[in-house]
């Protein structure tokens, strides 16, 4: 157990430090650390505290959120292809953000966009819960999620379609690719409470997810409240994914790939996979965000594009491995 968690934590810590120390300003190691620790009004302090620290913090928070929510979602649905976006929250948060950009709300005040995205996420949760019902099965949850995702995607396309302003349209497209660039501590403080609540909810699910390995009937007969578990899963996932999408846009593949890679390392136990995936998600997003800065420093490579570029082939590899095992 700790044989998996300890190396992952160490790796996340190293990458966090790397994220703080790597950037276009080209600051020295000692200089950067001094700037971060000492404070004051020097430009170095400004770069460290206002640009790099929030960026590294958000990478950890969002990565951990996506990894944890992905592991929980796969555990509940007993399906390695499940991911946190499945319940329509990220799509709806994106719709909220897109509307904010289109209407100019995002330009009129700094938190306009993330707040609109959070509102979108909240609406999605309410809609999914209403559609899936209080006692439904995992199948009704998937169907409700697909319905809400499809609706959000259609409305997003509609906004783009009707957008009279090409600048707004291109801003929307770029925002939807997902990025941690130019985020401030305000974004950290906005997302943090939702993520803490969401992670706390998801962290309680371990034992129930383990029992669900044997199916919903067997889990219920072992004293697991499956409908309560489902409610906590939806609320927890919505908190973390909604907040993450609100501050960074849509970052795909993390919640899908990370639990998949780590599953064999934790003996496939859904409960043990939760925290391992949280750390693994942080590692993946930190690494991708550093790569985005290093590979094409002057081209503003988007984080979501990178995670998808890394995630998709990795996923293909896993599929090929699975096929070899089965045939």
């Amino acid at each position: 157990m700790s044989r998996v968690l300890a190396p992952l934590a160490l790796l996340a810590l190293l990458l966090f430090a790397g994220s703080l120390l790597i950037g276009p300003a080209g600051l020295g190691l000692a200089e950067s650390l001094r700037g971060l620790m000492q404070g004051g009004d020097s430009p170095v302090t400004l770069v460290m505290r206002e640009i790099r620290l929030p960026r590294a913090l958000l990478a950890v928070m969002i990565g951990a959120s996506l990894g944890l929510a992905g592991a929980a979602m796969q555990g509940y649905l007993r399906n390695p292809l499940a991911e946190p976006g499945l319940i329509g929250v990220s799509g709806s948060a994106a719709l909220g953000a897109v509307i904010a950009i289109q209407t100019g709300l995002s330009a009129s005040f700094a938190l306009g966009l993330p707040l609109a995205a959070l509102a979108g996420a909240l609406l999605a949760v309410l809609l999914v819960m209403a559609l899936a019902g209080p006692r439904g099965t995992s199948l009704t949850l998937i169907l409700a999620g697909i319905a809400v995702s499809a609706l959000a995607a259609a409305l997003t396309s509609l906004v783009l379609n009707l957008s009279p302003n090409p600048f707004a349209a291109s801003e929307i497209v770029f925002w939807m690719m997902g990025s941690l660039e130019d985020r401030s501590m305000t974004h950290v403080w906005l997302a943090l409470p939702f993520m803490i609540v969401g992670m706390a909810l998801l962290a309680t699910l371990g034992r129930g997810l383990d029992a669900l390995t044997l199916g919903e009937d067997a889990a219920q007969a072992m004293g697991i409240h499956v409908s309560r578990l489902r409610l906590l899963l939806v609320l927890g996932t919505s908190c973390v994914v909604g907040a993450g999408t609100a501050v960074a846009g849509a970052i795909g593949f993390v919640g899908l790939v990370v639990p998949h890679i780590l599953r064999p390392l934790v003996g496939a136990h859904p409960s043990r996979l939760l925290w391992a995936s949280a750390l693994g998600g942080a590692v993946m997003v930190l690494a991708a965000d550093i790569a985005a800065r290093v590979i094409l420093p002057d081209r503003d490579l988007k984080l979501g594009v990178l995670t998808a570029l890394v995630g998709a082939p990795l996923f293909l590899h896993l599929i090929l491995k699975l096929r070899k095992e089965r045939f």
């Binding site: 390995t213 044997l214 064999p264 003996g267 136990h269």
Partner: peptide, 11 residues
């Protein structure tokens, strides 16, 4: 013990 013999993960 339900009739459906489900073991979802390779534990």
């Amino acid at each position: 013990m339900p009739q459906m013999r489900e073991i979802a993960w390779p534990i």
